[in-house]
């Protein structure tokens, strides 16, 4: 397949996983802002497990579990203790990022890190995680918009009081969505050393976590648009890198700005459909008399 397409699709994968995880949590009302740290944790755990076990799949799975633990803490602290989501998320960002560096330092130390073998190509020069990313997006869309369970989850993120009155388990839904969402973020992080670098480094995430939050807003918190948005952003990024090599007569730094400026520009024109879950970032107090 065309090299540009392959590069774009590969660059898209981590964004899809992390942004869909953000969306899934957000649709239940939990606004996770620990992406950057969770991706770093996923990258460190994924790399270390893959290195010691020799299986990338094991690395991805364990990374997912590591992310799930932090997601569970976030969901519990915001749902049952009703602590500020943004504050807890950032605290967990620091904790998970610190844990990632610490784990790596403990196992590898200051030595030259051995490379893990890259994910095998499955079809047309693409690895299985690409297929998984697309399948995840389609499945999330179908689940959220075509099943009762999905509608219940969305209702928790829009109006938990109404959902509660209908007998939907608001607390449990938030716990599950927060945990699974964080697991997806860590898996997205684990993809980075397995495809791009082969090794873990503290700067490996390079702001992708923050961009994933931007992509969740960009996609209006809907899985299908998040997939498109991730592809768009990845394509712009690859184009910028290509232009950097071939040269366009303008400084390459300005070309590198384009993906970010383009995303911002699209947001400006898309602000009408850029919906946000009604209860995003807020905590449900069952005993409060204030509705919505």
């Amino acid at each position: 397949m065309n090299e540009f397409v392959i590069l774009t699709i590969t660059a898209m994968v981590p964004f899809v996983f992390v942004a869909q995880g953000t969306m899934l949590s957000g649709r239940a009302g939990i606004f996770n802002v620990a992406q950057e740290g969770l991706m770093l944790l996923g990258a460190a755990v994924g790399y270390l497990v893959s290195l010691s076990v020799g299986s990338d799949l094991a690395g991805l799975v364990v990374a997912g579990f590591a992310g799930a633990v932090f997601g569970l803490i976030l969901a519990w602290a915001t749902t049952y203790l009703r602590l500020d989501q943004f504050v807890v998320g950032l605290a967990l960002f620091f904790l998970s990022g610190g844990t990632a560096s610490l784990l790596y330092r403990l196992v590898i130390g200051q030595d030259e890190p051995p490379r893990i073998k890259p994910l095998p190509e499955v079809v047309l020069g693409l690895d299985a995680m690409v297929l998984a990313a697309v399948a995840l997006s389609v499945a999330l869309w179908w689940w959220l918009y075509r099943t009762d369970a999905g509608m219940r989850l969305r209702s928790v993120g829009e109006n938990p009081k109404a959902a509660d009155a209908l007998g939907i388990p608001v607390f449990r839904t938030r716990m599950v969505a927060g945990t699974v969402g964080a697991a997806l973020m860590a898996v997205g992080g684990a993809y980075l050393p397995m495809v791009f670098s082969g090794v873990y480094a503290d700067g490996i995430v390079a702001g992708r976590g923050w961009l994933a939050i931007a992509l969740a807003f960009f996609g209006g918190w809907r899985p299908q648009f998040i997939l498109i948005g991730s592809a768009f952003f990845a394509a712009m990024d690859v184009l910028a890198q290509k232009a950097q090599v071939t040269g366009l007569g303008i400084p390459h730094q300005f070309v590198s700005m384009l993906p970010y400026l383009a995303t911002l520009l699209v947001m400006v024109f898309a602000f009408r459909w850029a919906l946000v879950p009604g209860f995003l970032g807020r905590n449900y107090d069952r005993e409060s008399r204030i509705t919505s």
């Binding site: 961009l211 939050i213 931007a214 300005f254 700005m257 970010y260 400026l261 947001m267 850029a274």
Partner: peptide, 19 residues
């Protein structure tokens, strides 16, 4: 334009790195 300020400030950070 009701563009979320988290989104715009994060994106502009990346633009500033290039600048």
């Amino acid at each position: 334009f009701s563009v979320n300020e988290i989104l715009s400030t994060v994106l502009l950070n990346f633009v500033s790195f290039e600048l």
